[in-house]
Design a protein around this nucleic acid. Sequence first.
RNA 1: GACCCCGUAGCUCAACUGGAUAGAGCAUCAGCCUUCUAAGCUGAGGGUUGCAGGUUCGAGUCCUGCCGGGGUCGCCA
Length: 592
Amino acid sequence: MNVFAIVKRQVDAAVAALIAEGKLPSGLDLARVAAEPPRESAHGDVTTNAAMVLAKPVGKSPRDLALLLVDKLKAAPDVVDATIAGPGFINLRLTDRVWLDVLRTVLGTGTAYGNATIGGGERINVEYVSANPTGPMHVGHARGAVVGDALARLLAKAGFAVTKEYYINDAGGQVDNVARALRMRYLQAIGRITEADVQGALERKEIQYGGAYLIPVAEALAARDGSKWAEVNDDAVWIPALREFIVAWMMKLVKEDLAALGVSHNIFVSEKALVDAGKVDAALAFLTEAGLTYTGILEPPKGKTPDDWEPRPQLLFKATQFGDEVDRPLKKSDGSWTYFAGDIAYHKDKVDRGFTDLVNVWGADHGGYVKRVQAALKALTAGKGQLDVQLCQMVRVLNNGEPVKMSKRAGTFVTMRDLIDEVGKDVVRFIMLTRKNDAPLDFDYAKVMEKSRDNPVFYVQYAHARGRSVFRHAAEMFPAADLSDKGLASADLNLLNDPDELAVMRTLAAWPRTIEGAALAHEPHRVAFYLSDLAAQFHGLWNKGNDTVALRFLQAENHALSLARLALVRGVGVVIASGLAVFGVEPVEEMR
RNA sequence: GACCCCGUAGCUCAACUGGAUAGAGCAUCAGCCUUCUAAGCUGAGGGUUGCAGGUUCGAGUCCUGCCGGGGUCGCCA
């Protein structure tokens, strides 16, 4: 039940009736007609822009058209009043019964309340994390993981058939580099070289990865294979072997870290598997057949020519035909594929698996890469495929305002594990969703654990816990009462006539459209703001009870009123739980 | 030099994809309070939405140009 969707249909019906009466021309486009909560609650319960949007196509002034519509809308079910305001808004007031019905619906549907059908069961692919298997995941990955996972849950709640996907970059030069670094640590593990040798190699940039996290990997390799790799000097032999070892190890760690964060993917796609299966060649052949590749020489970037720049002919993709700035290279000068070539094959693979609606969650440092992948997808799907890229900005980790730079484990950056160990997965998840992903985020260990109004995790969880507390008291006060959702739904809700109580129900009524809006915009953070609003309203009711005994939820001498208010308390709890479920956060029963 | 993101109250951020008088919290100021779970409550002040144009019934939101901050820029992924 979505009150605003129902009103929208009533508005559409009013327009249709006027058309049938010959007062309006037929064939009007109602797509831009909206039924929304007004910004000011004093303006009514629902507002529609119909008169303003349709004024021009029907050739009437907004006010004249509004007069016609108001006439019809006043007769619509549950409409108490319809008035014209401002430049042509039509404000509707609905009967209280509508809001009581909303509450009954919440109690009847539980946390499934808010589930929407706008997705229509359409398949959508959300790819996120996709961290290189070269080291432990850091805070940036944590943000991407949480944003992607919450977005996937949000889309599922909105009725999409979601596939959560992770792309393993296990084929490029970086995994070879980490294999080289592993060999150094391995030689150290079997006593051939010292720590100083490893550090020296790092300083001379002979290896790029040297973190202590490689030591246990090297020891495990030594335990399995003894000293055999010390004797093998043919790169073509030992690199693939060590690479395979480190990738398997790191992916195991990645999956463990993600599990600790409550994140799980449906499918992991290996870049190397795509390469080995010939899919890069096939994808590029596809583009070449379509006449979209050529060999050419790129201009150096203006204003910043690399020192070692020299013009070279390269195989290029005609990205400019699809909105990119320049054509993009597919082959390196040594003849091997670029990362982009592999990514084209990967996105073609997604398309071949039946996806046309794609979302990728990336770090903001990949922003310059968005257009070319979108261009490639258009080329691969004749324009049918849609790729939305959500870029996550930096996370600054702080403790009481002081930057936290060093990880306990990795030494150079704060790892995902550090975060989880410090504050717990639910706090990490919630806080990561309190900003839109393209805005930088401060993550302050002290602040996110603070028990205060300022801390949205605490504030929302506390509202839920307070609600549960009321129920524990209620069970003692009314031992014989049926406090189940079903029992509460049959309480006499007409007793809920306090304006603040009705205001809470209006907020509950806005939950389904919050889900729809957030899902369509791919913006899970909106749920966090909704939950904070709902929690604030609930705490407001609570505080009024502190001041005025008659406004407390539980009235020992008034069974019926207590049950009605318990229904409302429960309704708030259900919607908070429904929202936290989108975030993958557990609602708490009590706070101690 | 080019491209992408950001710029809203002293601070941290909203604003439901173009709607009405731009909203919260913190901080400040003025009162109140000791609890159905304590981690408080009520009210007040605070704005040329970086600047300048444009589009239209209507712009924080869309377009153009500046200013400021961040990111990226063939053979990394």
